[in-house]
Simulated scan of single mutants.
Amino acid sequence: MKRFLLPLMGLVALLLLAAPASAANPNCTFTVDGMNFGKGDPARDRNLDMTVTISADCSQDGLDIFSLLMPSIKMCVAISPEPAGSDTGWRHLSGSTGDTLRYNVYTAPDRKTVLKANEKVAVPVVFQWELLTLGRRKGAGTMQIAGRMPPRQSVPDGLYTANVPMTISYFENPFEADKDCNNPSERRAQKTFKAAFLYVSSCQLSITSDIDFGKVLDLDQALQAQGALRANCDKELPYTIRMGWGNNTESGTANGRFMSNGKEKVKYELFQDSQRMLVWGDGPNDLLKGKKGTGIPISIPIYARVPKQATPPPGTYTDNVVVTLEYN
């Protein structure tokens, strides 16, 4: 047994002595996606989130056994500060009018930690290595940072952008638990990604209550009912609402609206006011106008009346009316 023990100890000692020799730092090139928040309305009531993928292609020469056994590479990112005068705690997208939209950059997609200017932060990266020849390898990996635009921001229409300079530092990292991004042998790459958002004024319209005159035995007296719309337009955005004349109008709009049951009809009308004096139509003189958005949903009533008229045969009488919201 002793004859085999001594050579084994010698081999172990030889490996331990060889371990401190490290391979050359990798050479890497990077591509960085843009932080495109898309287009829409920044006055919405929810955060708008995006991620930025940083792709790395690396090669490394001079590998020894130690590097092959512990092949990790650490990558750290830092972004440049914004121009002086920006409000603290936010980055900004700028529009042609000089208005800005707030956003922030985070160290990871969980968006728990803001990536502060000039602060080097380690970013998790997963590498797939391929051994080319003895002592040489290549690999590719990706890492992600994230962006978030907060809600309820009011700005004019237009494209809002920012160019964000970034420094990516990287070095061989055999000890993955080490979070220190300062390494005397690190290499650096300078990249710039673009953050952008296209703001397009918008409105949403929905029907919250249809008009139902109920059940009646005759039309010897007028009937009244009420429906409702819900409009949500950007703050200060002018809009109008047109009310179509339905499917059963006779001779254009002069004779009003009709509900039908086969060939039988019941005359009715829609109004903008509770006194039922101002007919609601789709022409320049009878559409709902003079409205401006508030940035929050508002309810708009529809007043309806069936005038006294001859009672038609029993049945269910209906009509469909197209409602159009216009804004610019």
Rank of each mutant, 00 (worst) to 15 (best):
D286G: 06
A195M: 09
A78K: 01
C58A: 06
R148T: 01
Q60T: 00
L131K: 13
R91S: 03
C233F: 12
N248E: 08
P238A: 02
G135A: 02
G85S: 07
S80G: 10
L63A: 03
E326K: 14
E130Q: 13
E119Q: 15
N328A: 14
Y268S: 08
E172Q: 10
F213R: 04
A19Q: 12
E130I: 05
P307M: 07
S185Q: 12
R148M: 13
Q190M: 09
S274W: 01
Y268W: 09
L5M: 07
C203K: 06
G89T: 08
R137Y: 04
M243S: 13
K39F: 14
E269K: 13
L48W: 07
N118T: 05
F127M: 15
L14N: 06
W90E: 02
L205I: 14
P165D: 11
K235W: 13
A162V: 04
N47G: 11
S55F: 03
T318S: 12
S154K: 15
G262R: 06
G40W: 10
G98K: 02
W280V: 03
S201Q: 14
P313C: 10
G62L: 00
P284Q: 13
Y106R: 04
G158F: 10
Y303F: 09
K263I: 14
A177R: 13
I73S: 05
Q153W: 02
P20A: 07
Y170K: 04
G95R: 03
D218Y: 04
K120R: 15
K138L: 03
P313G: 08
N118R: 00
I298S: 12
D87C: 07
A140E: 15
R276S: 09
T192C: 05
I302E: 01
G244M: 06
L69D: 00
G135I: 02
K2A: 14
G135K: 00
Y327C: 06
G98S: 01
G135P: 00
L288K: 05
I54W: 06
T316P: 03
N163M: 13
G85R: 13
C76I: 00
N285V: 10
P238G: 09
T316K: 15
L288S: 02
S86N: 11
L68E: 07
L270G: 11
L288I: 02
G89M: 01
F30D: 06
T29M: 11
A56P: 00
G244S: 03
L237S: 00
S260Y: 05
A23W: 00
V279M: 13
F175S: 08
M149Y: 11
G295M: 09
K39M: 11
P314I: 06
Q224I: 12
M1V: 12
R257F: 06
I65E: 12
F193S: 00
G40E: 08
C58D: 08
I241P: 03
F30L: 03
Q275T: 11
E250H: 05
F37H: 08
G293E: 04
A122D: 07
L8I: 13
G135Y: 01
V121F: 05
E176N: 12
R257G: 04
P165R: 14
G315Y: 10
P81D: 13
N173Q: 15
Y239N: 01
V322Y: 04
S274T: 12
T318F: 02
Y317T: 09
A189K: 07
